[in-house]
Amino acid sequence: MKIHIPTPLRAYTGGQETITLAAQNVGGALVALTTEFPALRQHLLTPEGKTRSFVNLYLNDDDVRYLPEKDDSPVSDSDELTIIPSIAGGCCL
């Protein structure tokens, strides 16, 4: 499958925008990704191993948080996982 890396995290993938790897499910893909690029781990996961709250994971067009099997959702070679940090803000209280 392909994993798309957002601009700020490419510093930890040797500048690669797309990583191709083999995995059986979303969680496995993240393990494989952070095994190949260990410096990514602290940017994607909390010390407890949970996905950081501002990191969105989309399997093709679906938010992984809302998939019935979440991180256990199966993946195939043709699937694309996109890592996309949130973007928000506002002027005042």
Partner: peptide, 21 residues
């Protein structure tokens, strides 16, 4: 920022995650 200065707010900072952007 409607009717507020063009300065980042605490909310802007807390919600900013795209380092280098």
């Amino acid at each position: 920022h409607p009717d507020h200065p063009a300065q980042w707010s605490t909310t802007d900072f807390a919600e900013a995650h795209w380092i280098g952007c």
